[in-house]
Nucleic acid binder design. Structure first.
Length: 465
RNA sequence: GUCCCCAUCGUCUAGAGGCCCAGGACAUCACCCUUUCACGGUGAAGACACGGGUUCGAAUCCCGUUGGGGACGCCA
């Protein structure tokens, strides 16, 4: 049987990092088994669902490279089918009308909690004659769930988990306004969409027992389940939207590469021996649910940074130059993009994110004259200016403008003057970049070209005090 | 309160009874490389939550304790 997985976010916010990982695992599992990965937008909460959120989720998935198959299913549009199934259950005696008021239910809960009993609906309308229905109250439809025995989930990550049916109550299938509840819609949709494997956050584990009872009542074959642990924040507290969890677009803005985020998310809660850098091809070949751990893991930016740095260094210079140009507001400037691309070798070893890379690259984009920062200014003393002036003459006459040749020139110059190379290189760095740290300075000279280099040195000499 | 799940270095993990006085990666520290800062290289420090069992032998199995997490809605 072909594997069919799905990612089913509710569009009430952005695609947060936990959701992204759930989507990744579903995608990987489907691709690994040559199956189908589907997307279902659970937009049944009309109050909180927004068009912006739907777009953010779709953009996020696309950015991460998690392509889905078949058409996207919108849950709200399927409400009539959900109602139809609930009515069928009613007809078969698998469900019943309940006329309890919210106040009654609240009393029940308070009493149960006080008595140390499980908090659940007591089933008071379960076998009552509908003729007893109080006038003017619209009923909900509840599942007639088994009252004895136990329900068992054979979970691919959590193992066999069982719960006594007394712990579960008769859940609401249809609200008093006739709309289906989430719990019910999910089951009908997963069944109708032919989902074979439900992979989701383990906050849904206990929901699974109830959902299983719906499958049971309808005589449907249940999919297999895999509940993956949630991601926690660095402090161990849960990483939820309420606690500042970020959407993937925030990671994008911070300058993380999708391939780095994918690799990071994969390794969070999943392992394949000692492998750390895992390409998408390898991930598809290796991914399996039994490699998924059962304990929640903490999100660690330091490791993400490290991974991102690695992928940054592997990324094509031209692509990086375009990203940087866009971030520095000079997108489309061909000359500048070429300069950035040429400077990428030295630049990309020094950055963890595109944001950092862009900041470090800014000096390549700046127009003369530069405004050196305080530390650079301190380097540009009158003495240093004298050194620069002499060096400038030598450079102006240099037969080659290639980095190794420029370095030879500078070394010969330093030697002739009996000073250390650093005493030459640092003022040049300050002059060319306006900072005290930068890529190798002779590489910078080559990338900047003779004219720009000499111009910046002249500016520095003129500005020295 | 009731039920369910979890527990190896600071973090992510390897480990499915002897290969483990526990391996890798990130982070940290030191050294090397070096014109700066990085990258890279070498090395150091760093964990089986606790207590009982079972066994010739336990990080691995069982029980309990403690500590985390999740669920208990006419939200999803």
């Amino acid at each position: 049987m072909t594997v069919v997985t799905r990612f089913a976010p509710s569009p009430t916010g952005f695609l947060h990092i936990g959701g992204a990982r759930t989507a990744l695992f579903n995608w990987l599992y489907a691709r690994h088994h040559g199956g189908v990965f589907r997307l279902r937008i659970e937009d049944t909460d009309r109050q909180r669902s927004t068009k912006e959120a739907i777009e953010a989720i779709i953009d996020g998935l696309k950015w991460l490279g998690l392509n889905w198959d078949d058409e996207t299913v919108f849950q709200f549009a399927r409400a009539p089918r959900h109602v139809e199934v609930a009515l069928e259950m009613l007809k078969q005696g698998k469900a019943y009308y309940c006329y309890c008021t919210p106040e009654e239910l609240e009393e029940m809960r308070t009493a149960a909690r006080a008595a140390g009993k499980p908090v659940r609906y007591d089933g008071r309308w379960r076998d009552r004659d509908p003729k007893d229905a109080p006038a003017g109250i619209k009923p909900v439809v509840r599942l007639k769930a088994p009252t004895s025995g136990e329900t068992v989930v054979h979970d691919k990550v959590q193992g066999e988990v069982r719960v006594a049916n007394e712990q579960l109550d008769d859940m609401v299938l249809l609200r008093s306004d006739g709309t289906p509840t989430y719990m019910h819609s999910v089951v009908v949709d997963d069944h109708d969409m032919g989902i074979t494997d439900v992979i989701r956050g383990d906050d849904h584990l206990t929901n699974t027992f109830r959902q299983l009872q719906i499958y049971e009542a309808m005589g449907w074959k249940a999919p297999s389940f895999a509940h993956i642990p949630l991601i926690h924040g660095p402090d161990g507290a849960k990483l939820s939207k309420r606690h500042g969890a970020l959407g993937v677009e925030a990671y994008r803005e911070m300058g993380y590469l999708p391939e780095a985020l994918r690799n990071y998310l994969l390794r969070l809660g999943w392992g394949h021996g000692d492998d750390e850098i895992i390409s998408t091809e390898q991930a598809i070949a290796w991914f399996d649910l039994d490699g998924v751990g059962r304990a929640p893991s903490r999100f660690d930016f330091a490791k993400l940074d490290n991974l991102n740095g690695h992928y940054l260094r592997e990324t094509d210079d031209a692509r990086l130059a375009r990203e940087v140009a866009a971030r520095l507001g000079v997108a489309g400037d061909v000359a500048i993009e070429q300069r950035l691309s040429a400077g990428m070798t030295g630049l990309k070893a020094r950055a963890k994110t595109l944001k950092e890379l862009s900041e470090n690259a800014r000096f390549y984009v700046l127009k003369r004259p530069l405004s050196p920062d305080d530390k650079a200014r301190a380097l540009l003393s009158v003495d240093a200016a004298a050194v620069l002036k002499e060096l400038r003459g030598r450079l102006a006459a240099a037969p080659s403008w290639l980095s190794p040749d420029l370095e030879s020139q500078a070394r010969a110059f330093a030697e002739a003057k009996s000073i250390k190379l650093g005493q030459v290189a640092q003022p040049v760095r300050a002059a060319l970049t306006g900072a005290t740290t930068s890529p190798p300075i002779f590489e910078v000279m080559q990338v900047l070209g003779r004219e720009e280099t000499l111009g910046r040195i002249d500016d520095a000499i003129a500005g020295a005090a």
